[in-house]
């Protein structure tokens, strides 16, 4: 039943979005602590191009960073080398979502004057030219305003549980 619901949501995505390219199955993951990547079974011959966005049933998971004829590598939003332009849903303040290297992200460059609540949702702003605007990408899981830093330390959990992704939809950038 769960697989059915997941696949139904992906199917819905394919009919709702004009930037939909294809759906792919996750065939492998990086086994080390250094990278947060997935490998999918669709590549250049299926119309996939570098920097296209991969989206699962609950939200974006990453973008295409390596491309082969029959497969591609997706760098997840939780990878340390991943950055996504986002905005807070309520205040519309923009920031950068950077991967932490495990199963969470940091929201950077939010001033201490801005009030951010735990549970607040984050949307992609589209300003990076890669992720389409308006995708619900994560929610605030912890906020720290200690120290003499200019910006708050905001921890973000992705909407999609990245450890359980089995299929992704690829969207045009």
């Amino acid at each position: 039943m769960r697989e059915n619901e997941r696949l139904k949501k992906l199917l819905q995505l394919s009919s709702d979005r004009s930037d939909y390219i294809t759906t792919a199955k996750v065939i492998a993951r990086d086994p080390t602590n250094w990278f947060q990547t997935l490998w999918i079974n669709k590549g250049e011959k299926d119309g996939v191009v570098k920097d296209m966005v991969a989206v699962a049933s609950a939200g974006p998971v990453g973008r295409v960073h390596r491309l082969f004829n029959g497969g591609a590598g997706i760098i997840l939003i939780t990878d340390v080398n991943s950055s996504v332009a986002v905005r807070l849903q309520s205040s519309r303040i923009e920031g950068i979502l950077e991967g932490r290297g495990d199963n969470a992200c940091y929201l950077k460059y939010i001033s201490k004057e801005v009030s951010v609540a735990v549970g607040e949702k984050l949307l992609t702003s589209g300003l990076d030219g890669i992720y389409p605007a308006g995708l619900l990408i994560g929610y605030v899981s912890d906020v720290k305003k200690e120290g003499e830093e200019m910006f708050q330390e905001i921890e973000v959990s992705p909407m999609q549980d990245l450890s359980t992704v089995e299929e992704v939809a690829i969207l045009k950038k």
């Binding site: 602590n33 340390v80 080398n81 290297g101 495990d102």
Partner: peptide
């Protein structure tokens, strides 16, 4: 990785290698 590749792990939190 720092010297021979374009990726950088200098911002990785220390808790990850400690947990590893």
């Amino acid at each position: 990785f720092e010297f021979f590749s374009k990726v950088s792990f200098s911002n990785r939190p220390w808790i990850i290698p400690v947990t590893q």
